[in-house]
Design a protein around this nucleic acid. Structure first.
Length: 536
RNA sequence: GGGGCGGUAGCUCAGUCGGUAGAGCAUCGGCCUUUUAAGCCGCUGGUCGUGGGUUCGAGUCCCACCCGCCUCACCA
């Protein structure tokens, strides 16, 4: 089970042996207050964060600091504590960086040194003093007074190994974030990436918008939704699986360049690449087609990579280099031919025009691969090709690659190729074997859109993910939507690659987990309160 | 949902053939005024995920369940 063990029997009047650590720490609140400190005071005015201490003084020699004795006020969470009699060293951590304090009895006085003695790892303190270098050269604050800022009652993970238990890291991300530097770093980088993407879109005149999370008709993608209910209106609602149809309504309304960075919700399985709620960047650009978005996508990916990788484009993900400097480009059919993994004749573009030939290649694949392709009766050429592509190519697209031209059957919102109506003007971007983005020339002919919806509705009988009819969307298109191209980017997956995080749970602060059962913290606190002041 | 692996002290982990529970760190007590995985001495700390079963005896073997990880299926 992992994690911090729950409190034992409810109503246990005696000090449970197992809760001793917790109780000991709790009892220190009294000791701290008896020294004249508040256990949970209001604020602390600091002059330097640990980072600022480093930046301000790292170039100064020990002698220089000894002369200047620069004064600072620092604060943070106590992470380590070493004491030798009437002095000691400790590290406090703030904003992911640490500063060492040197606390001497003769410098801080009786009361503050008594405080130092009872401090536990995890407590928050403030410290005023001057900066010097120890004999090993570490920048350190020579304390002249201490303030107590907040008590940590629960014990911290071991300082050397940190918090290793994966389950606890996800369930108690608040511990993971301060105990494991890498965990914090992922989310800082994720934010840098999102800011860079926003900047790239904003500077091109895009408007950021927020469209409904709760929708009466779940559209814009093929996926199973979460459903909920609004009481006052007695109305069933779905959490959105995509913002697409609302963003395109905005293009109808004249917001020619719009984007949204927000959550989508899909009621499907969890995996290293899937979390039920995930973050998409979705953007639309009027008077453009999918080809215009190809170059822009390349730029956006490079921008994101550089933001995370300090100007570099080559990420290291699961022992492989993934270089976002450029995007290789293939049509879906070219990819099948070029990347054909099995022995024997490779398919040619000519072969892929014939369903029977394609079925033969599917059979070859099924002979050579563990994972078989199951073609339904009456399968269309396009669907067969898409399945063949997904099975033979997808995981092998490690370097960022743009795959374009998709079969019309699986693309109910995309515009057809003018010379080949079985195929649509659509591309997807793959990297590290994962789909990262999906883009197309938006279907803006309401008559054709109506037919596509009707095809989807007909599929609903055997396909829970089929698209619903959306009357209002058709009405919007009937007012005219300019030629438009749109794209969705999977933010979590891109973050995975750029931060070398093998699972999506490592880039989502609070990934979905099963309920963990009774935690018992209220009971534990209740017990701690009633046994305080008793015999110890 | 199927398959594989795992859950032992607050944390990180050992635990042999089934023989009655171990280490390091942390905590607690003592010594220590430049340490940094501080050090030295001493003491604590466990319904071995939960519930059954087999056995003279179960952390260990069997069954069921819970939680997690990996994997398969659907998906971005």
């Amino acid at each position: 089970m992992g994690g911090f063990a729950p409190a034992r029997r409810a109503g246990a009047a005696l000090l449970s042996l197992e809760d001793r650590l917790f109780q000991q720490r709790y009892d220190k609140i009294n000791e701290i207050e008896n020294l004249g400190f508040e256990a949970y005071p209001r604020k602390y005015s600091y002059t330097h964060t640990p980072t600022q201490v480093r930046e301000a003084f790292e170039k100064k020699e020990a002698e220089e600091l000894d002369t200047e004795k620069p004064r600072v006020r620092v604060c943070g969470r106590l992470m380590t504590k070493r004491r030798q009699g009437k002095a000691g060293f400790c590290h406090i951590q703030k904003d992911g960086e640490q500063t060492q304090l040197y606390v001497r009895h003769d410098a801080v006085g009786e009361r503050d040194f008594d405080l130092y003695k009872v401090l536990d790892a995890g407590d928050f303190i403030g410290c005023e003093g001057y900066v010097f270098r120890t004999k090993t050269g570490e920048l350190t604050v020579h304390a002249e007074n201490l303030e107590f800022l907040a008590k940590a009652i629960s014990p911290l993970p071991e300082k050397y190994h940190g918090l290793q238990d994966i389950e606890t890291r996800y369930r108690q991300r608040y511990v993971d974030l301060f105990a494991n530097e890498d965990a914090r770093d992922v989310f800082v980088k994720r934010n840098r990436m999102i800011k860079a993407l926003r900047g790239a879109l904003d500077s091109r005149g895009y408007i950021e918008v927020e469209t409904p999370m709760m929708q009466q008709i779940h559209g814009g993608a093929l996926a199973r939704p979460f459903s909920t209910h609004h009481n006052a209106l007695d109305m069933d609602l779905f959490l959105r699986i995509a913002p697409e149809l609302y963003l395109k309504r905005l293009v109808v309304g004249g917001l020619d360049k719009v984007y949204e960075i927000n959550r989508n919700f899909r009621n499907e399985g969890l995996s290293m690449r899937h979390n039920p709620e995930f973050t998409m960047l979705e953007f639309y650009q009027a008077y453009s087609d999918y080809r215009d978005l190809m170059d822009f996508s390349e730029e956006l990916l490079r921008t994101a990579a550089e933001a995370v990788l300090d100007g570099a484009t080559k990420a290291r993900f699961r022992e492989q280099d993934v270089d976002f400097a450029k995007l290789a480009r293939f049509t879906l059919r070219e990819a099948i031919c070029e990347l054909w993994p099995h022995p024997g004749d490779k398919p040619t573009l000519e072969d892929l025009k014939d369903l029977e030939r394609v079925k033969q290649f599917v059979a070859v694949h099924n002979q050579n691969a563990d994972k078989k392709i199951n073609l339904r009766d009456g399968v269309t050429l396009g669907t067969a090709l898409q399945l063949l592509f997904e099975e033979t190519c997808e995981t092998r697209l490690v370097q960022p690659t743009l795959i374009y031209e998709y079969p019309v059957e699986a693309s109910p919102l995309s515009k057809q190729k003018p010379d080949d109506p079985d195929w649509v003007e659509r591309f997807e971007i793959y990297a590290a074997g994962m789909e990262l983005a999906n883009a197309y020339s938006e279907l803006n002919d309401p008559q054709e859109q109506r037919k596509r919806f009707e095809l989807q509705v007909a599929m609903q009988a055997h396909d829970a993910e089929a698209h619903q009819m959306d009357e209002d969307y058709l009405r919007a298109l009937s007012y005219g939507m300019p030629p438009t191209a749109g794209e969705g980017f999977g933010i979590d997956r891109l973050t995975m690659i750029l931060t070398d995080s093998p699972t999506i749970r490592d880039v989502i602060l609070f990934p979905l987990l099963r309920p963990e059962g009774e935690i018992g913290m209220a009971e534990r606190l209740r017990a701690a309160e009633t046994s305080t002041g008793g015999e110890t």
